[in-house]
Amino acid sequence: MTGRSQLTLVETKLFLRDPTAVFFVLALPIMLLGIFDIITGKSHDTAAQKASMAAFVPAMAMSMCLTMLSLNLLPTTLATYREKGILRRMAASPVHPVNLLLAQLIINLATAVVAAALVLGVGRLVFDTALPDQVPAFLLAFALGAWALFSVGLVVAAVAPGSRAATSIGLSLLFPSLFFGGVFLPKEQLPHTVSVIGDYTPLGATLQALRDSWEGNWPHTQHLLVLAIIGALCSVLAAKLFRWQ
């Protein structure tokens, strides 16, 4: 086993030792499916409205998972390592801290994939949630959404001097993202200005692209471009700003 693989294994064990993180990342999407299943089951919406919600809910649950990982867990973990001097010590050792960054990205991406699989599997078996009609579109939307959101999280990790600052910055980005991204209400129920702003946020673009794939449509080019541009710009910005100490 290579040093990078061993480091990834150790970081995975540390991640799994935090039950709160595992709960929110893996259990929260399933809880959201259950809550919305109860709400929609008792509603008197038309068949078209229920079909729209059937696409919105799983897309929203996956987007929430990616957002929690990228704006909360990832930057807080990396900022904690910087705060405790772990990154500085690793920079002077044969195990370069870049390997730690890669390990954290791998762990968070793997967690996101597991959460997505749970949304698809449990949603289908327990709540009779439909699967995405456009599988290639779904995979592309998920990949671009993960890239954009995690790159934003890396920028937060790059500028935050410690764990408290990372948590504060992450939360200051999280709640506006939830509002403008259309998590609280579907896009069509939002005021026009809020809806337009949400189209240019990583969470809003991810949610809508995933939702389009569920409805059998190819995601709008605008949403895909927004995610690609944010991913590219924030990746470069994080690389320029990141400091080991």
Rank of each mutant, 00 (worst) to 15 (best):
244 W>V: 08
241 L>W: 11
178 L>G: 07
24 F>K: 06
236 V>M: 14
16 L>A: 10
124 R>Q: 10
98 V>N: 14
29 P>E: 01
138 F>N: 03
56 F>H: 05
228 A>Q: 02
54 A>T: 02
21 A>V: 15
11 E>S: 02
218 W>M: 08
41 G>N: 09
155 V>W: 11
166 A>M: 12
239 A>G: 13
68 M>I: 14
149 L>Q: 12
39 I>D: 07
109 L>H: 04
41 G>T: 10
49 Q>T: 14
62 M>L: 04
156 V>F: 08
12 T>D: 06
58 P>S: 01
69 L>A: 09
108 N>S: 13
103 A>Y: 00
111 T>A: 12
91 A>H: 08
223 H>L: 00
36 F>Q: 12
19 P>H: 06
233 L>Q: 11
44 H>M: 13
153 G>A: 13
61 A>D: 05
146 A>E: 00
193 T>P: 11
166 A>D: 13
221 T>Q: 05
81 Y>S: 07
92 A>W: 02
113 V>C: 01
224 L>T: 04
166 A>E: 12
155 V>E: 14
155 V>G: 13
135 V>I: 08
233 L>V: 15
129 T>A: 15
73 L>E: 07
185 L>S: 11
197 I>Q: 09
211 R>Y: 00
97 P>F: 02
108 N>C: 10
228 A>R: 04
33 L>H: 08
132 P>A: 02
119 V>I: 10
171 L>Q: 15
214 W>Q: 05
57 V>W: 02
89 R>I: 00
14 L>C: 03
186 P>A: 07
99 N>H: 14
41 G>V: 09
50 K>H: 11
120 L>R: 00
134 Q>P: 01
151 S>F: 05
15 F>N: 02
15 F>E: 03
30 I>P: 05
146 A>Y: 06
237 L>P: 10
232 A>Y: 06
109 L>Q: 03
176 P>Y: 04
95 V>K: 02
168 S>T: 15
73 L>G: 07
160 A>W: 11
117 A>G: 13
213 S>W: 01
208 Q>C: 03
126 V>C: 00
176 P>Q: 04
10 V>G: 00
34 G>Y: 06
157 A>Y: 09
207 L>I: 05
180 F>Y: 11
61 A>H: 06
63 S>Q: 02
160 A>M: 11
233 L>W: 13
143 A>D: 00
156 V>N: 10
87 L>S: 06
18 D>C: 06
85 G>P: 03
176 P>K: 02
181 G>H: 07
129 T>W: 09
162 G>K: 11
169 I>A: 15
70 S>I: 05
133 D>I: 10
113 V>Q: 00
198 G>S: 09
83 E>M: 07
49 Q>A: 14
48 A>H: 14
98 V>L: 15
69 L>P: 08
114 V>T: 07
141 A>T: 03
